[in-house]
Write a protein that binds this DNA or RNA. Structure first.
Lengths: 293, 293
DNA sequence: GAGTGGTCTAGACCACCCG
DNA sequence: GGGTGGTCTAGACCACTCG
């Protein structure tokens, strides 16, 4: 089905259309070829009678509606990570809006790292399989030398029922099936991070220790390629704690050594949480780098 | 002097102008009323002979040049924090470009938090004297309850010579005059942050303990109002450490309690470092909140 | 009602990439 | 050479604010 038949509502058109379709605006960009009619929406207190179709409908700029439509296509997998999406001109034709409007929609998607523009080539769906993306979520960098990706050693991978606190953070029900992963990460052979991950069992069905081990590189790349789940953003809470016996042993440090504790919830499209990650970082030769702006 | 007489270079015009000023482009937006002529700049390998005036000149989109000019006006204090800057239409007239080009320049400045747009009112120079801005650089939030600003108690304020490590981070010479400040910050009466600040003596001449004490609210507000120095962005390195005797006493905690250590360098216009801040955060009832995107 | 930023359009040309 | 995103313009109308 052609996305052009979506219920886009040009608020400007809706408002002036009720009075009199004057000369000025090019107007009515949507209804033209669409199969479903435009749903007129009263935007505010401008005029009077409006043929209000639906009750409490959407209300946003056209480019936001376009952005939402494009996001839907990204979410549905119509365009997969790494792939080229249709050109601005084509999307403009499809949605029956001007190229400038599509451009503004894509501008925001690019700012949110959902897509990447490349002049002369086109617009691509972002992917975690890029050098650029590798350090977007990895903020622990060496005090000296260039940032690089650590090696992983998996300690444990198992299916369990979600504890209450985990379920709450991941928007699951307590007792729902989740996959639990525990690993240690090494920088230049030095154990530096011990991490516990919780993933919804429903989405990550079939994730085994073998697949994790044989996969090199960021786990988000694996999640994206093998399970069709792309991490979009994450929220992190950081504290200082003392190493307990378990962490001390795994990181080969003294009991009580201060460690950075990070609790991260990652989200995919629609702000849906799909990962809880609890990490302990040894910060004697590395630090957590943050840019405030 | 009117900024319109700046050496703006419309790269597009420069290129096609050398061939033949065809009908299409509106072209030559700058030279019109300006006193200094347009400096034509060869952009790449498009055409051949160009009346290259200067040797290795600027080369950037028009809107970037406009952005740079506006930034200069911000930096020079022509428009002060909190003030209204000229409207887009007026700036377009002043710079002899279209409103759309000015708009794109201001869009970027707004994205960088240098200015704030308010529909119907105008565009204002950002200031640290706003509720919105208070939490831009304060990432320590309570585990429960709403974020709020801590109270400060100043321990020490003195003029000293910059130690080597401080000088290096602040782009000063070792031994240059700096102001050293030490304070403790309280959330709901509980000492939570102990902080040491280093400021260039030249810029913050006249900063005394009295003025710090009588000033309520974020220090960046004071710096902006009293010393004309606006913090634009900051870079932070975070670690976990153990409380030493000094910190333990000031924060009323046991020796060895794990603390978050933050080293922050703040920058003003032109990426010039103007503050070094070293803090120790007690994270038993608070956490450092970070959004990854 | 006048002025401001916000949205939308249409059309031109550029820089870049690839076959 | 043809397609893509990037820049720039001109002009329209909207939403919002204030006197």
């Amino acid at each position: 089905m052609n996305p052009a038949s979506s219920n886009l509502t040009n608020n400007a058109t809706a408002a002036s259309g009720a009075v009199s379709p004057t000369a000025g605006a090019p107007a009515t960009p949507v209804a033209a070829a669409a199969s479903t009619p435009v749903t007129a929406v009263a935007s505010s207190n401008t005029t009077t009678a409006m043929p209000v179709a639906s009750a409490a409908p959407t209300f946003s700029p056209l480019y936001q509606q376009i952005k939402a439509l494009i996001t839907q296509s990204l979410q549905s997998g119509e365009w997969k990570p790494g792939e080229l999406i249709p050109s601005e001109v084509e999307l403009a034709g499809r949605f029956k809006v001007s190229q400038g409007t599509v451009r503004k929609a894509i501008d925001e998607l690019a700012a949110e790292n959902l897509v990447m523009r490349r002049q002369g080539k086109g617009t691509f769906v972002s992917t975690h399989h890029e050098a650029r993306a590798h350090f977007r979520f990895l903020r622990l960098v060496p005090d000296e030398g260039v940032p690089h990706y650590p090696e992983s050693k998996f300690i444990e991978v198992k299916r369990v029922r979600a504890p209450a606190d985990v379920a709450r953070l991941m928007d699951l029900k307590s007792g729902d099936a989740v996959i639990f992963i525990k690993r240690v990460q090494y920088f230049d052979g030095v154990p530096t991070i011990v991490e516990e991950l919780w993933l919804p069992g429903l989405i990550f069905k079939g994730l085994t220790a073998e697949r994790l081990v044989e996969y090199k590189g960021p786990m988000y790349g694996l999640f994206e390629t093998e399970f069709g789940t792309r991490m979009i953003r994450a929220s992190e809470q950081i504290r200082a704690v003392c190493a307990d016996a378990g962490a001390a042993q795994l990181l080969n440090i003294d009991l009580g050594t201060p460690l950075l504790s990070s609790e991260r919830v990652s989200f995919t499209y629609g702000d849906k949480p799909v990962e809880l990650r609890r990490g302990l970082y040894l910060t004697s030769r590395h630090h957590y780098q943050n840019e405030l702006s």
